[in-house]
Design a protein around this nucleic acid. Structure first.
Length: 403
DNA sequence: CCTCCACAGGAAGCGCAGGAGT
DNA sequence: ACTCCTGCGCTTCCTGTGGAGG
């Protein structure tokens, strides 16, 4: 006997009420149509690229500013507009966007660019000269080509790359190649070869970080399109903006915060995103960051952190050493001894005390622990170590790995 | 005052893996 | 395919520091 087919489990997910109208519009990858507070930058890039529409080479531009200040968004936006316009007017202008984090050498960048211009062919494995020629040929057909190199500081042989691309213009008769380099590393520019610097930085553009009011406006605009009407309280937007502004003026963080807050509201079945959800989302985003960080740590650093968490939880009655008050505060030497025991327990070797101290300084740098130098009343010199985060969560997450 | 303790942290060097050059 | 080079993770060794104790 056949039973009636049960409702598909995903049906329930679809029927579930949500605060979102279109969630895609509030992910950090989405490029919005409007880019507030960046008119000046858009104008400047646009003016420069407009030369290409008259059949002339555009200046190379170097764009820099901290993460999440709109560099990539603005550049992509202007490029998109340029190419759309050129296509509509039938002007031979073309361009491509390359993220140098994934294409981190001259060769890989060139391959990627040529691949964009000849999508039907495969150039992987061809010699660097061949790829170079192919790119020149493409421009020589009378095209003004603009290549955007995002995170350009990640390219190992960046001097070679910029030299080759700028020099290519000497070989091209009609047509040109221009570069837009984007970086959030402010020192990168100063470390460039002087010749590279002068050719890449014909035009420089600085993107300042957003302040709280600007972030508020950005979030408000995104909320309007991504969330259902009145689903997000104004105070929740302000709070997200304030958190992000305090950290670094990073719009990406602000957007992520609001996205997570929306997801939390959905999970709870709430129709509104309030301050509470934003606060919780902030904790979650922080937690995600912390656990990602722990995830990528070397094994023994994890064990050291685990030991600190373990000892902080145990809160052993202190060895009465000159009456030092001890609330979750540990001695450096004591942690090392315990760590050796813990490592043995897991069947692991141990690192030397020197390297252990290195790990401790790093953990402090990450903000996972705080240390203070021993003052009076202590024999010799040591560091007091205190965990800056709830020990149980760390303890459990690391323990899972070694069991 | 000298020595010891219990560390901090710099410098040098070692073994290894992975990439570049030939 | 082979060697050479380089960066990384780590150890060993060393010097420095400041209170405790003889």
């Amino acid at each position: 006997m056949q039973q009636t087919i049960k409702q598909n489990i995903f049906e329930k997910a679809l029927q579930r009420p949500t605060v979102f109208k279109d969630k895609n519009l509030i992910t950090p990858h989405h490029i919005p149509q409007e880019l507030p507070f960046r008119d000046k930058q858009i104008e400047e890039i646009m003016h420069n690229l407009a030369h290409t529409l008259h059949g002339a080479k555009a200046d190379n531009i170097f764009v820099y500013g901290v993460t999440g200040c709109g560099k990539t968004c603005v550049t992509k936006h202007v490029m998109q507009q340029l190419i759309e316009f050129a296509k509509a007017k039938n002007v031979p202008v073309d361009g491509c966007y390359i993220n140098c984090r994934t294409h981190s050498s001259k060769y890989r960048v060139l391959i990627k660019a040529v691949q964009e211009f000849y999508p039907s062919e495969n150039f992987m494995g061809y010699s660097a000269t061949f790829v170079h020629e192919k790119l020149i040929n493409y421009a020589s057909e009378g095209r003004e080509v603009v290549i955007v190199l995002d995170e350009i500081d990640m390219v190992k042989d960046v001097d070679d790359l910029v030299y080759e691309l700028t020099r290519a213009n000497d070989e091209i008769g009609k047509g040109s190649i221009s570069i837009i380099g984007i970086s959030n590393n402010l020192r990168f520019r100063d470390n460039l070869d002087p010749r590279t610097k002068s050719s890449l930085c014909e035009h420089e553009l600085v993107f300042p970080p957003y302040n709280a009011e600007e972030l508020y406006e950005i979030l408000r605009q995104r909320t309007e399109v991504a969330f259902k009407p009145k689903a997000v309280q104004n105070s929740a937007i302000s709070l997200s903006a304030a958190f992000a502004a305090k950290e670094s003026g990073d719009a990406r963080t602000a957007v992520m915060l609001l996205l997570r807050a929306g997801e939390l509201a959905d999970k709870k079945g709430s129709e509104k995103v309030s301050d509470d959800e934003v606060m919780q989302a902030k904790c979650r985003v922080e937690e995600e960051l912390i656990f990602n960080m722990i995830d990528t740590m070397p094994k023994h650093q994890k064990l050291v952190l685990y030991t600190i968490a373990k000892l902080s939880m145990e809160k052993k009655p202190m060895k009465t050493l000159a009456g030092v008050e001890r609330k979750g505060v540990l001695f450096s030497g004591e942690v090392y001894d315990e760590y050796c025991g813990v490592a043995k327990g897991f069947g692991e070797s141990t690192v030397s005390t020197r390297w252990y101290r290195q790990y401790i300084s790093e953990l402090e740098l990450y903000g996972l622990i705080t240390t203070t130098a021993s003052g009076k009343g202590m024999k010799g010199q040591t560091r007091f170590i205190k965990l800056g985060y709830e020990p149980r969560r760390i303890f459990e997450s690391v323990e899972k790995e070694f069991k």
